[in-house]
C-alpha cells in the first residue's frame, strides 16, 4: 500500500505503533520520528514548546490559529531558503529541518497574537501569550467586547466528535462567529465549554439540579448512591444510543467521563467521549 498522510486517529496510532521512522532535525537536534506524524506532535514528544490554540490531540487538525507556525527546509533546498508552515498540519519526512523558534517564526507569532489581542482584549489566555511574545498592548484597533472567542473551532470539532454537530461557524470573514443554530441538537455535555482554550463559552454546570449552556437549560441526572452528577438526560440518552448503535453492552451503572472533566485537561480521552470504544467500567 502507498503511504498516505495519517488522519486523526492514524496519527495517534502511528505515534505509538508505526514501524516506519524518519530522521529529522528539529532546532538543531537530530531525532527519529514516526513517518507522517505532524511536526507539532513530534515536537510535543520532545518537550519542545510550540504554542498552539486550535490543535487538540483528539481532534482533526484545523490550522486556523496560525500560532504553531515553524520554519522548515526540505532536503535539496537552497541553504538560505526556508518556508513557514503550519506545524499542526505538516507531516514530517526524512531529512526535514525544522526551526520552531527562529526570528521569523517569533515575528509572525507576535503579529498573530497582536491581532488576536485586538480581537479579544479581555482574554487572559491571549494576553499572557501575547506578553510572552513582547506584546503588552495591541497595536491595532481593539474590539470593544467581553467576548473571548478566537474562532479556533475546537468546540465545533469537539461537538462533531461527540456525534452531535450542534455547533457551527456562521457567516464569514471578520464577521464569522460560532453558534448553535439548532438548539435541539445540543445535549448539554459541556465538552465544548471545557475544551475552549479561552473560556469563551458561558455555562452553568450545576445550579440546583439544572445546567445551562448555549442559552438552553437542562435537567441533571445524579447517581443515587453517591450523589454524583452523571449528566443531562439528553446526554445519557445520546451515549446509550451511540453505544447500542455499535453493538456495545450498556452497563447498568456507568460513570461518565464528562463528570470528571477538568477544564482544559487536554487528554485525548476527553475528546473521545463520544467515540466510546468500549463501555466504561
Amino acid at each position: 500500500m502507498r503511504k498516505v498522510r495519517p488522519t486523526l486517529d492514524d496519527t495517534a496510532r502511528m505515534m505509538s505503533e508505526t514501524n516506519e521512522t524518519v530522521t529529522i532535525t528539529i532546532d538543531g537536534r537530530d531525532v527519529e520520528a514516526p513517518a507522517g506524524a505532524y511536526i507539532l506532535d513530534v515536537a510535543g514528544e520532545l518537550d519542545i514548546d510550540i504554542p498552539s490554540l486550535c490543535a487538540h490531540p483528539g481532534l482533526e487538525p484545523f490550522g486556523a490559529c496560525r500560532l504553531c507556525v515553524v520554519e522548515i527546509q526540505k532536503p535539496g533546498w537552497d541553504d538560505w531558503y526556508r518556508q513557514l508552515v503550519t506545524s499542526c498540519l505538516y507531516p514530517v519526512a526524512d531529512g526535514l529541518k525544522v526551526w520552531t523558534n527562529s526570528e521569523e517564526v517569533r515575528r509572525n507569532r507576535e503579529v498573530v497574537l497582536d491581532l488576536q489581542l485586538a480581537r479579544v482584549p479581555k482574554s487572559d489566555v491571549i494576553g499572557d501569550l501575547a506578553r510572552e511574545y513582547g506584546v503588552e498592548r495591541t497595536s491595532y484597533a481593539e474590539r470593544d467586547t467581553d467576548d473571548t472567542c478566537i474562532m479556533c473551532a475546537i468546540c465545533v470539532r469537539a461537538c462533531d466528535a461527540v456525534g452531535r454537530s450542534a455547533i457551527a461557524t456562521l457567516s464569514r470573514g471578520p464577521d464569522k462567529y460560532v453558534d448553535v443554530p439548532d438548539k435541539d441538537a445540543c445535549i448539554g455535555c459541556l465538552v465544548c465549554a471545557h475544551l475552549c482554550p479561552t473560556d469563551a463559552i458561558a455555562f452553568v454546570a450545576d445550579d440546583n439540579g439544572k445546567r445551562t449552556i448555549w442559552d438552553k437549560q437542562f435537567d441533571l441526572v445524579t447517581d443515587e448512591r453517591t450523589g454524583e452528577v452523571l449528566g443531562t438526560p439528553e446526554y445519557l440518552e445520546h451515549v446509550r444510543q451511540r453505544a447500542t448503535d455499535r453493538g456495545l453492552r450498556w452497563p447498568d451503572e456507568m460513570k461518565h467521563e464528562s463528570a470528571k472533566v477538568k477544564r482544559r485537561t487536554y487528554s485525548s480521552k476527553l475528546a473521545r467521549v463520544g467515540r466510546i470504544e468500549e463501555p466504561a467500567e
Binding site: G63, R66, V112, I150, P174, D175
Partner: peptide, 14 residues
Amino acid sequence: SCGKCVPCREGLRQ
C-alpha cells in the same frame, strides 16, 4: 475571506 484563519480574518479587518 472565509474567516477560518487569523492573519486573513483579523488582518484584513485591521
